[in-house]
Design a protein around this nucleic acid. Structure first.
Lengths: 208, 208
DNA sequence: CAGGTCATATGATCCGGATCATAGAAGCCG
DNA sequence: CGGCTTCTATGATCCGGATCATATGACCTG
């Protein structure tokens, strides 16, 4: 996951800093290339017809994002810094050249994209589930590492990502606690309880 | 989009035929590699907790699918032939080798994956929309080529892909016709009408 | 052609989540 | 500390889509 980032180091443009809330780029703008997030957090989203925002992706340091922009002339969504962020750009031409010249880069880059495809499929699967509690449980199961989940941000913020209002999400979490499916760990932490008395539960995993 | 397919020709295993309804592979099975669909149609889906199926991807000849399986030891979803299909497999090792040795293949393969990422993001965006009519209109806009959409399959079948029941989809289409947003073109064809008297419309495009 | 199956509608009812409202708790800042 | 904003939480109401039911049309098949 970090091996390919080392490949990119020499190809990068100088680091750029963005304050929290600042836009890195906007949809429709000519695409510069692959983005390397060195610190902070960035959200990619698209404005919906009703004025709401569809969160398309979230990147946390250290990670890359806007991979798709490498093959596109313009960005297709907005990128905004959730927190103050430091970003380096790998120009499109450099990525294309690296794909053909740096051994192992193509495989690493493709693997990264394939991972995104699987994540997005898992997310689409969650979004097509009926029932707020099921969607919520599936989402937590997706993020869980060893039965533990730490959101690292207000519960409220994840509601739009699973197609719920924050009220519905609060209620769904309360219901899951009541049903003995999860335990709360502080404000943004959860523990998944394996004992499922009701069979109406499933972990979506990564689809691919 | 077909250039990379030519690269793959010599690497393929012999063609295999599948009858309509037959399973090409199942989730959990060890992954063989990239699949090349020469004719017919294949659906990738995952079973949901309630017994329903989440359609994860659809491939129509000529196309590749299961790209992600190249980087994974096991399949993460089921593949079933919608119609009788002819498929050739490119073994995982061959794909990895091609990524490093065949000039242009890495870029083509990555571009294909990047396109899937954009499609999936657009789909996630649609699924997070409120309102059956909006979702339906956005879906049609996504498929439209020059204002025309030809589903090529029963309307009923697309309902699960946008998180609706077929009844809700029929009603949504009827409402869109009533509102003058679309025209029907035969049984599975539609024409998008640009004149939007109400501003509650948007075309999602491809997010990325 | 007759009979069966599936797609296309549309009506009636019910329910889950959106929406609106309220309120306490937690963090933040002058 | 006191005042402000944001998050968390829950109650009340409403509405859109799920669900159930029904009917016609299209298509396939013997």
């Amino acid at each position: 996951m970090t091996a390919d980032l080392a490949f990119l180091e020499p190809l990068c443009l100088p680091p750029r800093r963005f304050a929290a809330g600042a836009a890195l780029f906007r949809a429709g703008t000519p695409s510069a290339g692959l983005h390397l997030l060195l610190s902070g957090r960035v959200a990619l989203h698209r404005p919906l017809a009703d004025g709401a925002l569809a969160v398309v992706h979230r990147a946390a340091a250290v990670d890359t994002f806007a991979e798709a922009a490498v093959f596109s002339d313009a960005y297709h969504c907005d990128a905004v810094a959730d927190r103050a962020a430091v970003v380096r750009i790998v120009p499109r031409a450099a990525v294309h050249k690296a794909l053909q010249t740096i051994p192992g880069f193509a495989a690493a880059f493709s693997a990264r994209l394939a991972g995104q495809v699987q994540d997005l499929r898992a997310r689409a699967e969650i979004l097509s589930m009926r029932g707020a509690a099921e969607r919520t449980a599936a989402f937590l199961a997706l993020l869980a590492r060893g039965g533990e989940v730490e959101l690292g941000r207000p519960v409220k913020h994840v509601a739009p990502e699973i197609g719920l209002t924050h009220e519905a999400l609060y209620r769904a979490l309360a219901e899951l606690v009541r049903r003995g499916r999860i335990e709360r760990r502080g404000r943004t932490g959860f523990r998944l309880l394996p004992g499922d008395p009701d069979p109406a539960a499933a972990s979506p995993g990564r689809a691919g």
